[in-house]
Write a protein that binds this DNA or RNA. Structure first.
Lengths: 224, 224
DNA sequence: GTTCTTTGCGACAGGATTGTGACACCGACG
DNA sequence: CGTCGGTGTCACAATCCTGTCGCAAAGAAC
């Protein structure tokens, strides 16, 4: 049984989502404020959090950030506007997905399943993105079923990037995490590593599908 | 119905995991101290033990060791940090898996299933991979029907690797699990052990079928 | 369009990692 | 006491990887 913590201040929305998701078989825990949500979270250890952006007191972004401080639990943001900034901010704050209000329960259910599936497949040590499959236990990478031989650095790079799909890593961060030592000058080293990685997993390295360049900042794994 | 003995001193964590795992359909037995845990274990004979590392009185390692004295029940360690030392120590003490706190119930559920699955597959005592056959009860190895004489170290190495086919073991892990003592310098020892093992079970040691090298990381048993 | 910055990519030499043989040590056993 | 199988250590070569340089290409700024 999957438990969902719903943090939403509007009593009407809260109640209706509680009932609807309950009908989908989720165990519902609700909170009307960010503070209450955070404390319910530590008490109940839910499997997933559905979080409204607009909250009295500490807002959704902040709640998201605090949850992320000591938990990897999946978070789905509820946002009222179609404002892209909210979405970006939400994902930046550590949300795994977002849904625009008003939301149909069936949509939310689908998103919850999708996010949980992703989280669980991470547990089994397998990360799938398109036709790329990364097994973190056997340290094997397959592309459309065909195994891709990887060198240690390429593999560490891919593992690091794919651990947080969508997140932008600066060259400095990648140097720290993949190469380990505090390199000073040569961030071209990272570019080179990325290139070698792309050569192996990208069909068309000029238009990479998995490892994106974020000019001026660094690199990012996965779509948008 | 699967019964889980949860040994955890923090009342909040204990209670929340008890509720959450209960929702997953496990019968929960809880204990707040190592002593209590040990006695509950003999009383209730749970299918699996989830054990916090930090306990007042006798700590998790010690509890683990005592459980192992007269039981093969799977043990999952809860450890607060990503501290590798804890992990190694835990596995050394006989734990089957470890999970880092704070833990999502879904994660713990997945681990419990995985460990139980493994435990069941260990029961039959025979592991077959291609023409290689490992009998974990009589401790005999046959290759295409012909018995292969193994030295103790080679056998421990093969048993350790084949217990988790596909998983990559670092040299350090193999030193801990196979050689047991905390060797400092020579990881070439592992390479040598692998070589000797390969010489016995591989047709063409230059292109091994069973024991693969994962450059930069370690070794792995079984097909890619 | 021009210029400047940033990134992609090939090449290469030095270096790290691993496979393998040789050898000494050690305990078991006769 | 001598032998012998098993094991830990060392040395060395082969192989594969990696860091760096240089230049081309692409993108951003103006």
């Amino acid at each position: 049984m999957t438990s969902v913590l719903l943090i939403e201040d509007d009593p009407l929305v809260r109640r209706s989502l509680e009932l609807a998701l309950g009908r989908y078989g989720y165990t519902m825990i609700t909170a009307a404020t960010g503070e209450n949500g955070l404390s319910r979270f530590t008490e109940e250890a839910p499997d997933i959090v559905v979080l409204d952006l607009m909250l009295p007191g500490i807002d959704g972004f902040e709640v998201c950030r605090r949850l992320r401080l000591d938990s990897q639990a999946p978070i789905i943001m509820l946002t009222a506007r179609t404002d892209d900034l909210d979405v970006v901010g939400g994902l930046e704050a550590g949300a795994d997905d977002y849904v625009v209000k008003p939301v149909q329960p069936a949509v939310l259910d689908a998103r919850i399943r999708a996010v949980l599936r992703r989280a669980v497949s991470d547990l089994d040590g397998v990360r799938s993105h398109g036709s790329l499959r990364i097994d973190t236990e056997s340290l094997t990478v397959t592309l459309g079923g065909a195994p891709v031989p990887m060198t240690p650095t390429e593999l560490r790079l891919l593992l690091t990037l794919s651990r947080s799909p969508g997140r932008v890593f600066s060259r400095q961060q990648l140097l720290e995490e993949v190469w380990g030592h505090g390199y000073l000058g040569d961030s071209r080293l990272v570019d080179n590593g990325i290139m070698r990685l792309r050569a192996k997993i990208e069909d068309d390295p000029a238009h990479p599908e998995y490892v994106q360049t974020v000019r001026g900042f660094g690199y990012r794994f996965g779509p948008v």
